[in-house]
Design a protein around this nucleic acid. Sequence first.
RNA 1: CGGGGCGUGGCGCAGCCUGGUAGCGCACCUGCUUUGGGAGCAGGGGGUCGCCGGUUCAAAUCCGGCCGCCCCGACCA
Length: 564
Amino acid sequence: MRMSQLMLPTERDAPADAQALSHVLGVRAGLVRQLGAGLWTWLPAGWRAHQRVTVIIREEMDAIGAQELLMPVLQPRDLWAKTGRDTIEEVFRLSDRRDSELVLAMTHEEPVTFHVSQVVRSYRDLPLILYQLQTKARDEPRPRAGVLRTREFVMKDSYSFDRDEAGLEESYEKHIGAYDRIYDRCGLEWYRVDSGVGMMGGSGAHEYMAPCPAGEDEIALAPGYAANVEVATAQAAPATPGAPLDAPAEVETPGATDIETVAGVLSVSPDALLKAFPVVTDAGEFVVAIVRGDHRVNEGKLEIALGERCRPATEEEIASQLGPPGYVGPVGTGARVLLDEAVAVQGGGGWICGANREGFHLQGVEPGRDFDFEAVDIRRVEAGDRVAGGEIRLEPAIEVGNIFKLGTRYSEALGATFLDEEGVERPIVMGSYGIGPARIVAAAIEQNADENGIAWPKAIAPWEVELVGLGKPGSDEQAAAERLYAELQAAGVSVLYDDRDAGPGEKFTDAELLGCPLRLTVGRKSLESGQAEAQGRRGLVALEGPDLAGGTAAAVAALLDGLP
RNA sequence: CGGGGCGUGGCGCAGCCUGGUAGCGCACCUGCUUUGGGAGCAGGGGGUCGCCGGUUCAAAUCCGGCCGCCCCGACCA
């Protein structure tokens, strides 16, 4: 590709509203442009990178026997009503000129299951893995960070159909193999982490997470352990409660309504306190969740422990059920208490909690003796917790894919059944699996950029080589660059040729911004030496320049082999 | 949905408080010079100042309403 003919609108300045690095560099390097909130156009160079990702995805999906198809984005709402998903807030709903109700698909479980329900009759038709690369539309509450969270995006979504749980397990394992290879080949740093199955039910799920500063999620990592903090579990460092007492004793703590202040007034560390987190469940039950003072409640884990959704209690509810907000505790209330395992496991007396009386706390509290409780894991893990002997660290990360054992939720709702060997009708056991190529591109930028711009992994760079010609029009230098460009093209090298009539500074700066792995320069110096200059983008390292006299393309290919 | 901020040429911004010819840098066009890290000189083109209404002799500027966009939080099968 000749840069003089390429639509590559590079910018010296970042857009004023850009925060995330992939957003800033994506726009500055001319990869993407915004059309509206969460609506992005892929410009030619950016789309090349996106395409390279989808090529890798197709190769690996095909390799596990998955079959590609394409389903509409626009779908009848009726279909979605059958699974109850038509009322999800994120689903765009619209109607046509005849007032027929339609939705824009956020994923494609409904249509794919519909088709399979019509086609699959017998156990002999299974297993089946179907996939597509298709646009998804989601009415996101808050699009953000450029291409990281958008309202419309391309997704690779695949769906597995099996006779039973064992078959699903096999399909799931196949996807794990394919996904591991895809992210490796794309040059990402990634983790496969346990994730919650959420409100959709199902029997297991993992997320593929790429660590990067702009990530919206947090993952907990330890040697041999990786989980989304939403579901992570670990052992807490022991707390240091005070001396046990024969019975809880009131102590004056005027004005001390938060953990820090109480700990300060009583000269103890926050981990000696019990933090009460009163909630009201969907069913209307008032429950007091309790974690250590230095811990935080993980509301998702709390809901799993409760078995239903809940919300924080209002101040009025707290006042009427327990006592003055800021001074509440579990002792003498009769309320149902869920006590976090970090406290329950350590046990003992000497804990401090609110006395349910304005200006007072209780010392020497002992769970079990002074209040009844159910021991559950409801806290958010903290950096420094331990799991399997290793220490947890937390990292921000972006979700670049997920795999999910759906079970029979969709097949039952849509009547996707088959006859087994005994002639018994059974629901098909399903899995669903997603990958966001745009997020792979964004994560690759985030993970591989420096102050000069992007430093693409070779496998997904828009071009592998950028050839910078420095000669002015009609010069010997320009003629040499033209010859080299023609030779590289003929040899099938992926090359972008900067043939613009521009100064060297501008060309070098743009080359570093766009970030192709190998930069070749042909100018006065290279004519004198008989070699093109070569520089690797990662670290801007000088490489042995390929000879211009002959065999240059082979030498360039060898150089590329040595680059990441 | 709650909080905060911003809409002036392709990009980045000033002007608004205190109403009176719409400006600056970059980019762009023409000519000449220049060519190894974002060149110089000269000339030139491009903006209903987000939209609607109000006040006024006069509105980018003041007032009201609406729309759009960004950030933080909530949310995120």
